[in-house]
Computed example of a mutant assay.
Amino acid sequence: MKTDEKTLQRVYRMPFSAVYPHYVTKVEKKGRTKAELHQVIAWLTGFGDADVERHLAKETSFEEFFAEARLNPDAPLITGVVCGVRVEEIEDPVMRQLRYLDKLVDELARGRAVEKILRS
């Protein structure tokens, strides 16, 4: 699926720190923990807690966030629908990586076991 240029530019510039609190709220409302969220983020990006905090403090854009990430080689195993779009059909790499993260957060919030979320 091709995403229009205006949307891509908006998402590229969006700070990770603008979305992160929503991730925390979403998982905590469903009885999951911030530590589990960080475990999912670490699996996908290779970022530890200190890295996440640094990106939050710097207000790193999603484009910069994923440019610095060491994406897990099993990330392409993340499939399904997020926001009405099939993750595996997204053409733009940054948008696809962002949707990978959204999908993992959704699975965590839905109560899926962390061991199953962390595909391998």
Rank of each mutant, 00 (worst) to 15 (best):
K2E: 14
T3V: 15
D4W: 05
L8E: 02
L8M: 08
Q9L: 13
R13F: 01
R13G: 11
F16V: 08
F16A: 05
V19H: 09
Y20V: 03
P21G: 05
P21I: 04
P21L: 04
H22S: 12
Y23G: 03
Y23E: 08
V24G: 07
K26M: 01
K26I: 05
V27K: 00
E28V: 02
K30D: 04
G31W: 07
G31S: 07
K34V: 08
A35N: 10
E36C: 07
E36S: 11
E36Y: 03
L37V: 04
L37E: 13
H38D: 11
H38T: 08
Q39R: 15
Q39G: 12
Q39D: 14
V40W: 03
V40P: 14
V40H: 10
A42W: 05
L44N: 12
T45K: 05
F47T: 02
G48T: 09
G48F: 07
V52D: 04
V52A: 06
E53R: 14
E53Q: 15
E53K: 15
R54N: 13
R54D: 14
R54A: 15
H55W: 05
H55K: 08
H55V: 03
L56P: 10
A57V: 09
E59C: 05
T60D: 12
T60A: 13
T60Y: 01
E63I: 07
E63R: 15
E64N: 15
F65R: 09
F66Q: 08
F66D: 13
F66P: 09
E68M: 08
E68N: 12
E68S: 09
R70D: 14
P73C: 04
P73S: 07
D74H: 14
D74S: 14
A75F: 00
P76S: 06
L77Y: 01
I78Q: 08
I78S: 10
T79S: 13
V81L: 02
V81W: 02
V82I: 07
V82M: 01
C83K: 06
G84E: 01
V85R: 04
R86K: 10
V87Y: 02
E89T: 05
E89M: 01
I90N: 07
E91V: 08
D92G: 09
V94S: 10
V94Q: 09
L101R: 00
L101S: 08
D102S: 00
L104H: 04
V105A: 09
V105S: 10
V105G: 11
D106C: 02
L108S: 03
R110K: 13
R112P: 03
R112S: 04
R112F: 01
A113I: 11
E115C: 01
R119P: 00
R119Q: 06
R119C: 05
S120A: 06
